[in-house]
Design a protein around this nucleic acid. Structure first.
Ligand SMILES: [Mn+2]
Ligand SMILES: [Mn+2]
Ligand SMILES: [Zn+2]
Ligand SMILES: [Zn+2]
Lengths: 149, 149
DNA sequence: ATTGCAAATGATAATCTTTCTCATTATCAC
DNA sequence: GTGATAATGAGAAAGATTATCATTTGCAAT
């Protein structure tokens, strides 16, 4: 019986560094995540993982994203669609915010240091240390022809 | 049979203004909401409503918050606890943001016009009109004695 | 390479929040 | 007050996530 091995990936290495047991399923999910540059939910991750290795269950995908999130490898996002979405907590990708197109649902990332420090300052002034910022803005394209699309 | 009538409230008036049928249950829920200055979830609203009028079901609370939200009377909030929370969309209360205490879960409201216009500007510069801002920050009190609390 | 054991997996049940169904009841314009 | 219409209550159903448990696997020590 041939075992479909996924190639190693940056996330698989991270897995080892954290002392997590590197199973075939985790290698596959790590590979899929490293290969993604969007914000898939668990169902979508499951679809992509099955392409690479059919011996995987959605329960394991749920377990693995939770594990990865607890270990700082993944970030969970809530764009309000009922299901959580995930992206790699990448050091060089950097912290960023999300603009969601109200009509298409498309997610556009942006960074803004002025926003970073403004939020820092507001929270500090209220006597707190900033732990997490949960921010997404919904917008509609200005010059969009509406009403007969 | 005596029918426990809730007093009218600002929200009950809004109900009428929008042409919504003003049932006893809606009057009760409107009263409870007008009486609240926090961010209750549906279960909590249900508890408060039953105090006023036991002839109410949680299904109706769910239906009513949805109706009120669709009519701009309520705002739905997501503070990440799994259930939606609600507060009155009050004109004079004004738009505001939320700081959540990481240790206690307490929700602290704040306004900041600089943040308002910065977000406006960022979104406009990306070619969009700002529709909704979903922002909450999690913070931890600076001078809190941790680790043996 | 084999063994052994703790940990992970797959399949599915359970949980949790929210919505839906449908028979009954209440609102409101007349 | 009557009647058409919409709202309600109770519970089923849906959708997302977590828990259960028998089986399999990774991996450290032999
Ligand atoms: Mn949510
Ligand atoms: Mn079910
Ligand atoms: Zn992102
Ligand atoms: Zn508020």
């Amino acid at each position: 019986m041939k075992e479909p091995n996924s190639p190693d990936s940056p996330l698989a290495d991270l897995c080892r560094q954290r002392g997590l047991k590197l199973t075939g399923q985790r290698r596959t999910i790590a590979f899929v995540l490293s290969d993604s540059d969007d914000h898939p939910d668990v169902e979508e991750l499951y679809r992509r993982a099955v392409e690479v290795d059919p011996r995987i269950s959605i329960a394991t995908v749920y377990r693995t994203v939770r594990l990865f999130e607890e270990n700082g490898i993944l970030q969970r996002r809530d764009f309000g669609g009922g299901r959580a979405r995930y992206e790699v907590a990448d050091g060089d990708h950097g912290d960023h915010y999300h603009l969601i197109d109200a009509d298409t649902g498309k997610v556009i990332e942006f960074e803004n240091t002025e926003l970073d420090s403004l939020l820092e300052g507001i929270v500090r002034q209220m006597g707190y240390d900033l732990v997490t910022t949960r921010l997404s803005v919904v917008g509609r394209t200005k010059a969009k022809t509406r009403s007969r699309g």
